[in-house]
Design a protein around this nucleic acid. Structure first.
Length: 495
RNA sequence: CGCGGGGUGGAGCAGUCUGGUAGCUCGACGGGCUCAUAACCCGUAGGUCAGAGGUUCGAAUCCUCUCCCCGCAACCA
C-alpha cells in the first residue's frame, strides 16, 4: 500500500513580492513531491502565506485599506508564482484563514503549561518590530541604521514559550536522527548554537504595539507574535486539531526551509510540537541562498533576479532545470545570465533537445516512424534514485545527463546513418538498424521518466514523441536563445 | 581564540571520512562525422591540489601551525 507522504515549504511574508528564494522553496518541494507521486505514493504538499504583523498593517494603512484587504490582494502574487513554476501543491494556507486562527488559539491553550508572562525592557525599533541589545544600540548611536529612526526604550509584558524545557529532547532528536537536519553541516551548526540550551522565546506582543494578529486567548491586551502563528501552519493546514485526517500526514516527511530560518524550525517549532505531544518532522531540508555573480541578492543593490522574467523568456522547465541542477540543493549557489544561458543552450538545447531531434529524425527517415521494440531501457537508475532520496537533486540531474551524453556517444559510435545505407540490400543491416534505434528510443523514454520530477512538460513532450506507434519529428525543444550572451552562430545578430 | 563553510588546470566543481596513476563540466586549440538545434563525437594543451612543518615506503587526502575568502550573529529563501 502506498504510504501517505507530507512535504512543506516555508510560508513567505506577503509584505513584498515573491523572489527567487521563494521559488527555490517551491521548486525543491515540488521535485520531491512529483518523484514520490511517480513512485506511487500519495503526497500532500503544503504552501502558503504569512499574513499578520505590523508591517502588513502599516502598508495597508498607507493604502487606506484594511490589513485583510491588503493581504487579500498580495497573497495572489505568491500563488501566481507557484503556478508559474508549475508547483503541483495540494494545500494553500493563509494565516488569516478562519480555521488556522482558531486552531492556533487552541494550540496556545494546549501549550499553557509551557507559557509564562514576563516583563521585558529594552531598545525597540518600530521598523524591525524587534528589540536590540545595548551593544547594538550603542554601535549605531541610538538610531536604527535600516530605518533611520531612534530606538525607543520600551518596557512591555510578553508571553514566553518555555523552549528551554525541551533543549535536551530536541538535541537528542537531532543527534539520533529522529529529526534529521540536512545537510550535515547545518545540523552541526545548529547543535553548536544550542550548546548552552535553547532560549525561551517571546510569543506575544501587547495589543497596543501589535494590532494585526491572532488574539491571545484569555488576555485581551495581548496579540500573538509571528512564531507561534506562522509555524503552526504546518499542522493547521492538515486540519489540526479538529479534522482527524491530519494524523494521516503528520509528522511531515520533509520540511523545506532556507538556511536563514533554520533556527526557528529546528528550535522553536520542535519545542511547540513537543509541548503539544506531537512527533517531530522527520527531515528538515535546509537549502542555501542564490547569489548573483558572487554577491548577495538584495533589493537595495538592485541585482535581484525576477523568477517571472526567467520563466517568461526561457520557459518554466528551463527555470526548473537551472535551479535544480546548478544551484546545489543543500548549499548556496550562484546565478549569472551567462551561466543560465550557457546551461540553457548547451545542456538543454545541444545535449537533450538535439538528441531528441536526431533520434526522432532517424526513426522517421529510416523506418517511416515505426519502432517495434517495447523493451524498457535498462540503464541503471540506482545512482539517480539515491541522489533524490539523499535530497541532492542536483546530483540526480547529473546522473540523467550521464545517460544523455552516453546516448549521444553511442549514436556516434554505432553510426545508424551508415547502417541505413545498407539496409535495403542487407537484411542483417536492417535488423541491426532497428535494434539501434530501439535502444535509442527506449533510452529516451527512460530519460523522459527521470525528468518527470524536474521538468514535467519536457518529460511529457519526450513521451509524446516516442510513445506513439508512428513517431513524428517533434517541435524543437529548447531552441537557441541569446538574450544576454553573444550569439556565436551568424555575424548578423550581435546585440 | 564567537560559530560554520571554503581555498584543486582560464571558470565552476568532484575527489579528503576509508592515504597509493589528480577526475568532471564549461572555455581554448586541433581533428572527425553528417542523423540532428552552426548540433554530435574524438583528441591536445593547461594543476608544485593556499603556504610551512610533521607522520609514512608513499599525502590533495592524516596531524600541527599560518595566510586568505565567504556565510551567520544584523528585515529578507
Amino acid at each position: 500500500m502506498a504510504k501517505n507522504l507530507y512535504i512543506t515549504t516555508a510560508i513567505p511574508y506577503v509584505n513584498g513580492t515573491p523572489h527567487i528564494g521563494n521559488a527555490l522553496d517551491y521548486l525543491l518541494a515540488d521535485i520531491w513531491a512529483r518523484y514520490q507521486k511517480q513512485n506511487g505514493h500519495e503526497v500532500r504538499f503544503q504552501v502558503g502565506t504569512d499574513e499578520h504583523g505590523n508591517k502588513i498593517a502599516a502598508k495597508a494603512g498607507e493604502l487606506g485599506i484594511t490589513p485583510q484587504e491588503f493581504t487579500d490582494q498580495m497573497y495572489g502574487n505568491f500563488e501566481g508564482l507557484m503556478k508559474k513554476i508549475n508547483a503541483d501543491y495540494t494545500d494553500f494556507i493563509r494565516t488569516t484563514d478562519v480555521h488556522h486562527k482558531a486552531a492556533v488559539q487552541y494550540i496556545w491553550q494546549k501549550l499553557g503549561p509551557y507559557i509564562y508572562k514576563d516583563k521585558y525592557e529594552g531598545w525597540y525599533c518600530m521598523g524591525h518590530e524587534a528589540f536590540f541589545t545595548d551593544k547594538e544600540v550603542e554601535a549605531s548611536n541610538g538610531v536604527c541604521p535600516d530605518h533611520s529612526t531612534e530606538y525607543q526604550k520600551v518596557s512591555e509584558e510578553n508571553y514566553y514559550l518555555r523552549a528551554s524545557d525541551f533543549t535536551d529532547k530536541i538535541r537528542q532528536a537531532i543527534e539520533s536522527g529522529e529529526m534529521k537536519i540536512v545537510p550535515d553541516f547545518r545540523k552541526k551548526e545548529f547543535l553548536e548554537l544550542i550548546k548552552d540550551g535553547l532560549q525561551d522565546v517571546s510569543i506575544s506582543r501587547p495589543k497596543k504595539s501589535l494590532s494585526w494578529g491572532i488574539p491571545v486567548p484569555g488576555d485581551d491586551d495581548q496579540v500573538m507574535y509571528v512564531w507561534l502563528d506562522a509555524l503552526a501552519n504546518y499542522i493547521t493546514v492538515l486540519g489540526y486539531p479538529d479534522k482527524p485526517e491530519w494524523k494521516d500526514y503528520w509528522p511531515a516527511d520533509v520540511q523545506v526551509i532556507g538556511k536563514d530560518i533554520l533556527r526557528f524550525h529546528a528550535g522553536i517549532w520542535p519545542a511547540m510540537l513537543l509541548g503539544l505531544e506531537l512527533p517531530l518532522p522527520k527531515t528538515l531540508l535546509v537549502h542555501g541562498h542564490v547569489n548573483v555573480g558572487g554577491a548577495k541578492m538584495s533589493k537595495t543593490v538592485g541585482n535581484v533576479v525576477d523568477p517571472v522574467e526567467l520563466i517568461d523568456n526561457y520557459g518554466v522547465d528551463a527555470f526548473r532545470y537551472f535551479f535544480a541542477r546548478h544551484i546545489p540543493t543543500q548549499d548556496d549557489g550562484d546565478f549569472t545570465w551567462e551561466k543560465f544561458e550557457n546551461a540553457y543552450n548547451n545542456e538543454l538545447g545541444n545535449d537533450l533537445g538535439n538528441l531528441v531531434q536526431r533520434v526522432a529524425n532517424m526513426v522517421v527517415r529510416y523506418q517511416a516512424g515505426v519502432v517495434e521494440g517495447n523493451a524498457a531501457s535498462e540503464h541503471d537508475m540506482q545512482p539517480y534514485r539515491l541522489a533524490i532520496e539523499a535530497l541532492t537533486f542536483d546530483q540526480a540531474l547529473d546522473e540523467v545527463w550521464v545517460i544523455i551524453r552516453g546516448l549521444n556517444r553511442y549514436l556516434d559510435t554505432v553510426k545508424p546513418w551508415d547502417i541505413a545505407k545498407k539496409k535495403d540490400s542487407d537484411p542483417e543491416a536492417a535488423a541491426h538498424l532497428t535494434e539501434v534505434l530501439e535502444h535509442a528510443v527506449n533510452t529516451l523514454q527512460q530519460i523522459g521518466d527521470m525528468l518527470v520530477p524536474f521538468m514535467p512538460a519536457t518529460a511529457a513532450a519526450i513521451h509524446e514523441t516516442f510513445d506513439n506507434e508512428v513517431v513524428a519529428v517533434p517541435e524543437v525543444l529548447f531552441p537557441k536563445l541569446y538574450i544576454h550572451t553573444p550569439d556565436p552562430r551568424g555575424a548578423k545578430n550581435t546585440p
